[in-house]
Design a protein around this nucleic acid. Structure first.
Length: 445
RNA sequence: CGGGGCGUGGCGCAGUCUGGUAGCGCACCUGUUUUGGGAACAGGGGGUCGUAAGUUCGAGUCUUACCGUCCCGACCA
């Protein structure tokens, strides 16, 4: 993309309402524009990142055998009356009437809708296990939206629901979700720690939250820092293998890790002093096993092999996709701007032409742009007629992980500069070498 | 939901106390000179001062109500 043809309203100054770094940088980098409290438009750059995160979530869910679909944002109140949550949910639910005066609502979550779909079409144990999910906008009329997309009223969330014949099978679904979530966060360049959590209004017996450590996090967390050494890496996990999944879960849930909601000082004291850590964290996901709570209330049952009607065991599992954009920035930035992990960067590489209009520089840039593009890499080419300083600052703010700088001075010696946003290291190489280097970096990911 | 702050061109702010017909920086447009870490000069465009009532000869400024938004606390992907 040529910057001169893109829509990227970068701000030099920080809008006064933004207090935390991710919100500030998202506004300054032209990723979002506030529409009203807790509601944002996603401008082109922010939209790209949102979609990249969404794609990773989709890929990892499908690997785990979970099936994508899409449910509406507007739901009928009737289903919620059936589950008993229409009254329970309170003012956080945005309630709407349609032209006939029917009670509708903007969905804050989808347990009711998915259970209704399930009971309409599934009646045999032979159709289980089944896990359906979607990624859809949600609305929760928060008392106090804040921190930009971190606590919006409208937010983009992946929510998945498993239907299993019994408790053990549902626990496997739970474990499967934990593994797939850990994998997703890792791919986004995040260290997310599963922590034993409270079930809250969704209700449930077993639940973990996933927290990214960050000073600006809203939760207070206590953990054994040896958990930070864990990583799934390239290790393959067979999602159909109950023992394998359960092993991974055991490994990740053995070290002490809890939020203040479930924190237990006596247990925490058993962690060796030097490993006992407490800090702040951002919640980027949560998994629940809640048994037959909704299936009982809404009559979601199947016949088992004995012909008996049994309620299905369910769980629900969420990843805050729009919140992750903020969380990733909280975990990856410096005083100059964002530093995107390669997997979610809006563009793979930045290209700066220091002397727009200079024949040699224009030509070299075009060559680099075309070469990288033909390899499927997205390049943000700053071809504006700006001075060097402005281009550098903009590129620093945007945080593309790699950049190539082209100018007449270097070209005189046949070189351009390739640099890493994260380390700040640069090297001078030929145009061909520069292209090759960027391609190699992304091939290895 | 309790407490506090703030609404003045796209962004950051001054002006409000003490009423007299709106200003600064950045951004934007035109031109010239510049160009390897946010250039200089010259010229120019853009604001019913959140909304509505009221007080006054006169309201950005005073009064009242409302709306919006942000922050702190209790709740949440």
């Amino acid at each position: 993309m040529r910057l001169s043809r893109y829509f990227l309203p970068v701000l030099k100054e920080t809008p006064s309402e933004a207090r935390i770094v991710s919100h500030r940088y998202m506004l300054r980098a032209g990723m979002i524009k506030q529409s009203s409290a807790g509601i944002y438009s996603w401008l082109p750059l922010g939209f790209k990142v949102l979609k990249k995160i969404e794609k990773i979530v989709h890929e990892e869910q499908e690997k785990a055998g979970h099936i994508p679909m899409l449910m509406p944002t507007i739901q009928s109140a009737d289903l919620w009356r059936e589950s008993g949550r229409y009254d329970d949910y309170g003012d956080e639910m945005l309630r709407i009437k349609d032209r006939s005066g029917r009670d509708m609502l903007y969905g804050p979550t989808n347990e009711e809708l998915i259970t209704d779909i399930f009971r309409s079409h599934v009646s045999s144990y032979k159709d289980l296990p089944l896990t359906l999910y979607h990624i859809q906008w949600k609305f929760r009329d928060e008392v106090r939206p804040r921190f930009g997309v971190m606590r919006g009223r409208e937010f983009y969330m992946k929510d998945g629901y498993n239907f299993d014949i019994d408790h053990d099978s549902a626990i496997h679904a739970y474990n499967r979700h934990m593994v797939s979530y850990l994998r997703s966060y890792e791919r986004m360049g995040l260290k997310a720690i599963p922590m034993r959590a409270d079930s809250g209004p969704i209700g449930g017996e077993d639940t973990h939250e996933f927290l990214v450590l960050a000073e600006t996090g809203e939760s207070e967390v206590f953990y054994d820092d040896r958990i930070l050494d864990l990583s799934l890496g390239a290790e393959a996990v067979d999602y159909d293998n109950w023992d394998e999944c359960s092993e991974v879960v055991k490994k990740w849930t053995s070290p002490y890790a809890r939020t203040n909601e479930t924190h237990d000082n006596a247990l925490f004291d058993q962690v060796p002093q030097e490993h006992r850590k407490s800090s702040r964290g951002i919640e980027v996901g949560q998994i629940f096993y809640f048994g037959t709570k909704y299936s009982d209330a809404m009559g979601a049952s199947v016949q088992n092999s004995n012909g008996e009607k049994v309620s299905v065991h369910m769980g629900s599992h969420g990843i805050g996709v729009s919140r992750l954009v903020g969380a990733i920035i909280e975990a990856n930035h410096d005083e100059k701007g964002i530093i995107w992990p390669e997997e979610v960067t809006p563009f793979h590489c930045g290209l700066i032409n220091l002397r727009q209009g200079d024949e040699q520089a224009d030509l070299a840039c075009q060559t680099i742009y075309d070469s990288l593009s033909s390899f499927g890499l997205e390049v943000l080419y700053d071809d504006r007629d700006e001075r060097a300083g402005g281009k550098f600052s903009t590129m620093d703010l945007l945080g593309l992980p790699w950049r190539i700088i082209v100018g007449p001075r270097g070209l005189k010696n046949g070189v351009v500069e390739v640099g890493s946003r994260r380390t700040g290291q640069t090297e001078e190489v030929s145009v061909e070498e520069a292209v090759k280097k960027i391609i190699q970096i992304y091939q290895s990911i």
